[in-house]
Design a protein around this nucleic acid. Structure first.
Lengths: 257, 257
DNA sequence: CGCTTTATTGAGAGATATCAATACTTGTGG
DNA sequence: CCACAAGTATTGATATCTCTCAATAAAGCG
């Protein structure tokens, strides 16, 4: 773990390309400068390095600058589950605010760098900048929504649907960051995907092979091409956002459980 | 749905017994008075009534005053899943902040009342009261942690463990609110429990019967007695908080996936 | 009191887990 | 540069848990 403090121009929030996903959303230039002053430290992580461990006292939350991280929970009996994968611009460590120490473990899936947002100082600044406060609330709320959609996946979907949903979710998040949305490298192992989706590694492998045979994807090791996006969306049971489609219709909602 | 506005002494935050779980935690008397002024409206709900539906624009978040509510997500194909059950003092509607409209449906499982916290006004007040801002962050963070533990349950546990975890979680939350922790009424149907736990109603029923035969619980309809708490904790794979026990030990963590 | 909803229990089917063998990658050292 | 080892992924065969279908029972409600 490699700490650094820097005022170099390229590392400021005010010029960071991730600003549109990160804390500064909605802020004017003057206020972004105040964030610049707050977020001066970074951590450089090698693959496999921990950013924090559960139980560590919360002193900061982090935003991913580059790379990919995972967070996971563990059970006393040693079982673990991957809870999330974190791409550039996403915030980590929010689960630590409630009790003052992190509830999860966070570690890098590849060489990564995260910005350190000292939480006490951040709250003070948010106190002074309403837009920043609101943006932080939006970020936490979206995190909640993300987890709740994940719950929906684990609770109601079969393995095939979960995997399709996962691939599409990743694709959308990459697209939003300006990467290719139909061809990318999976930074996580099959084991980690399985853990995230609540299925075994063998099932992940079989489903990927099945997708490949069906012409939905091409996969070679961790490099994946999404060939038939519509097919994947159909499998996932969610409408393709590229082609209209309404969400859960009022009609569908009448049949309450 | 029955709106009311009231200044009656019994409905003020400053005298509400739920203050210790709700927004006012940590506030001094003067500041609680300012919350009193903010939270003047309430909604009274009959069993089955919606508090909000997904897609409704967010204008407020809500805290449960009495009763029980559930929130659920629906899939375009009509499948639904219960995401959470909400007891007095808990906050609902947080998933609406991210996009400006609720992502879930919320409805009452029994006659309930919730306090309306106009969100815009709330953010303004939080802007002025640092402790309030921090408390709100803690609430959102705990909500995240709750969902993430739920993910752990759906992703790694078998039906029996999920159910035991669910009963114990409910028990703990009731205990914190001063209710009996070993004997209570389930406000939700077997179907709703199953949906929440990602298992079928028949499985819920069978597991409850099994628990009953093992002497872990006594159950008659929706009235349940937890007889052997330690046994349940053991089944759930989590240490009984009443008897020391460390969480996930460093040793257990070495065996990373 | 009968009707509707909710819950229990049984039998069989099916999806995924588990166990096991093989193949492929990557990294290391001769 | 190749051989070997360790880690990672694929594929097959079988086991198991939970689902599905079905029948019955109990409870809530008008």
């Amino acid at each position: 773990m490699n700490y650094s403090t820097s005022d170099s121009p390229t590392s400021k929030c005010s010029v960071c390309v991730l600003g549109q996903f990160c804390l500064p959303v909605g802020l004017n230039a003057a206020d972004v400068t105040r964030i610049d002053a707050l977020v001066k430290e970074r951590v450089h992580l090698q693959k496999g390095e921990n950013l924090y461990r559960h139980g560590d006292p919360l002193s900061a939350v982090y935003s991913v600058r580059f790379g990919t991280l995972k967070t996971e929970y563990c059970l006393p009996d040693g079982r673990q589950q991957v809870i999330g994968f974190h791409l550039p611009g996403e915030i980590l460590g929010l689960d630590g605010i409630g009790e003052g120490h992190y509830q999860s473990d966070a570690l890098a899936l590849e060489e990564s760098e995260v910005c350190i947002i000292r939480f006490e100082a951040f709250e003070s600044l948010a106190q002074e900048i309403p837009v920043l406060q609101h943006q932080f609330h939006r970020i936490m709320s979206r995190e909640l929504t993300q987890d709740q959609r994940h719950l929906l996946s684990l609770g109601t979907m079969r393995a095939e649907e979960r995997l399709a949903t996962f691939l599409l979710n990743l694709s959308q998040r990459l697209a939003a960051r300006g990467y290719l949305n139909n061809e990318f490298d999976l930074r996580m192992s099959r084991v980690e995907i399985g853990s995230y989706l609540g299925i075994q590694i063998e099932t992940v492998s079989r489903m990927l092979s099945r997708f490949s045979e069906s012409g939905l994807i091409q996969i070679k090791q961790r490099h994946i091409k999404l060939i038939d996006m519509n097919g994947l969306y159909e499998l996932a049971g969610i409408p393709n956002p590229d082609r209209s489609a309404s969400a859960c219709s009022p009609d569908a909602r009448i049949k309450k459980i």
